[in-house]
Simulated scan of single mutants.
Amino acid sequence: SPNGKRYARRDRAGAIGDAFGFSVAPLLARAVEIESLAAQAVADRELLRVTRERLTLCRRDISKLITAALDEEISGDWEGISAMFRALLARIPRVATAEDLAPLLDEMAMLRAEIVNMLERRIKTQKIDANESQIEHHKQNSNPDSNYELEPSFETKQGEKAAADNDPNAGPSDERRL
C-alpha cells in the first residue's frame, strides 16, 4: 500500500479482492537465495567457533610449555619466545572473524611446534648424557658354594650327601628309587 498500512478490499460476496501489505511473494521469489544465505551463516558461525577453540587450545599449550620451561630452568631464549607470544596475543581482535583468526592460528601453531622441538631436543640431549655417564653395577652372585639352586632336581637330601662324599661313583640311594 502507498501509505504502508495493511488492508484488504472485499467484493460483494465477502471474498478478498485486493490485499495490500500482506503479500509474501517477494520472499517466496527469493526463498532459495535466503536459504543458501542462512546455511552460509550457520557454516561461518561453526567455522568461527572451531577456529576460536583451536586458538584457545594453542594459546594454553604455549603458555604451559613456556611456564614449564621457565620453572625447570631449561636453557633457551624463553623471554624472547614469551615476548613473541604476547605480541601474537595482542594481534587478536576483540571481535574477530574466522578470516582474521586463521593467520594468527597458523603463527601460534608454528610457535608451539618450535617450542616443542626445543624441549624435545633438550630431552634427547639429557637422555644421551645420562646413558654415557650412567654407571650401573652388575649384580652377580660370585659365591660358588651357594645353597640356592635354580632347579629342584639338584637338591640333595641328608642321607645322600654323606654317601656321595664317601663314594663318588655311587648312584642314588635305594630310598630314592622307591
Rank of each mutant, 00 (worst) to 15 (best):
I16P: 01
Y148R: 15
D100S: 06
P2K: 10
R91Q: 09
A90I: 06
N143V: 04
R12P: 03
L27I: 09
S173P: 13
L47Y: 03
G4L: 02
S173K: 04
I135H: 04
A162S: 09
E53C: 04
S142H: 14
R59G: 04
D174G: 04
E99N: 10
E73V: 00
F20I: 06
L89Q: 14
T156I: 14
L150Y: 09
R86C: 03
A69H: 00
P2V: 05
I34Y: 15
G159D: 11
Q158H: 06
S82M: 02
A39T: 08
E46A: 11
E120M: 05
E79R: 07
R94T: 13
T56G: 03
A39M: 10
M118N: 11
L28Y: 11
K124M: 02
Y7L: 09
L178K: 15
S142F: 14
A102V: 03
V95E: 13
A162I: 14
T51C: 04
F22H: 15
P152K: 15
R30M: 11
R177W: 08
R52A: 03
I74E: 00
S75F: 00
K127W: 01
A164K: 09
P168C: 04
E160G: 07
I66C: 03
R121C: 02
R52I: 01
G17N: 12
M108C: 07
Q140V: 14
G21K: 05
A25E: 04
T156N: 04
I74S: 00
E136R: 15
I74G: 00
V95T: 10
S1N: 10
E151S: 13
G17C: 03
A162H: 02
D165F: 15
E107R: 11
P168K: 09
V50N: 10
Q158T: 12
H137E: 14
L105H: 04
D18G: 03
S63A: 09
R52S: 08
F20R: 11
K127N: 09
A39F: 08
D167C: 06
L111R: 03
A98N: 07
N131A: 07
D145M: 07
K161H: 02
D129F: 09
E72D: 12
A8P: 10
L37Q: 15
D44L: 11
L28I: 08
T125C: 06
M118K: 15
G17Y: 02
Y7F: 15
G14V: 06
A102F: 02
R9W: 14
D100G: 01
A41T: 13
T97R: 01
E160Q: 14
V50C: 02
E35Q: 12
Q140R: 05
E33A: 08
